[in-house]
């Protein structure tokens, strides 16, 4: 496979063509935070947390879905990148329900973890929050869409790993929502003995029945800044 020479954070690197910026960074122990990206799933660039600066590119690019090119000069932690990344997390938190201390996943929540790392502090933006009823009709899964950040990992995980198509995305803009069939509460037989989507959910939106308390044992994540 063709080797490509590129520069990340002033380091001269070489990698195989077809790799994404995020993959090359990872291989070279450069940590780029990402929420919607998971190695096992196709990258979709939904969360924009993994953005990096590529010289001569007009905008910041999502590193999880941008393939490397010959001579690329990339900055993963420049001032501009950090500012944008922080704002993205802030926006996610602003429309997130925010009841972390009531949430069983509080200390292992990836959103909260990234917010902690980036020291985003309290969101500056006052926006409408999305509240939905908790869905517990299924004996295999509890879904609390109030905590959903629309990263679409559950959709991809179900499609690509379980090879089922339980979830889809419906509506538009702020009304966007992960739906099951005609926007019905989740209660499917294919979910029996499967917790793939639950294991991929970065927040507390998807969980099993009766596991309350287990996740509270993680180190408390305090968002400073």
């Amino acid at each position: 496979m063709e080797q490509i020479a590129l520069t990340i954070n002033d380091r001269q690197l070489s990698a195989s063509s077809g790799m994404t910026i995020l993959e090359v960074a990872k291989e070279n122990s450069i940590d780029i935070p990402a929420l919607c990206y998971r190695q096992e799933l196709s990258p979709i660039g939904a969360c924009r947390i993994c953005v990096v600066e590529v010289e001569r590119s007009e905008t910041l690019v999502g590193s999880c879905h941008t393939p490397i090119a010959q001579g690329m000069v990339i900055h993963t932690h420049s001032k501009k990148v950090l500012q944008v990344r922080k704002t993205m997390v802030e926006l996610l938190l602003a429309s997130h329900c925010g009841n972390c201390f009531m949430c069983d996943k509080a200390n292992i929540c990836e959103l909260r973890s990234i917010a902690t790392d980036l020291e985003v502090g309290l969101p500056r933006f006052q926006v409408k929050k999305r509240y939905y009823p908790v869905e517990d009709a299924s004996p295999f899964i509890v879904r609390d869409l109030t905590k959903c950040i629309l990263c679409r990992r559950c959709v991809s995980a179900c499609n690509e790993i379980k090879k089922e198509k339980v979830f889809g995305i419906a509506y538009r803009g702020f009304d966007s929502k992960v739906v099951v069939d005609f926007d019905q509460p989740i209660d499917k037989d294919v979910c029996r003995d499967c917790d793939v989507c639950i294991s991929f959910c970065p927040t507390g939106a998807l969980s099993k029945h009766g596991e309350i308390g287990e996740e509270k044992k993680g180190e408390p994540l305090i968002i400073s800044g």
């Binding site: 979830f167 889809g168 419906a170 509506y171 739906v179 099951v180 069939d181 005609f182 926007d183």
Partner: peptide
């Protein structure tokens, strides 16, 4: 050969 949720989406 699609899911209902995708068509609804």
């Amino acid at each position: 050969d699609m899911s209902i949720s995708d068509v609804y989406g």
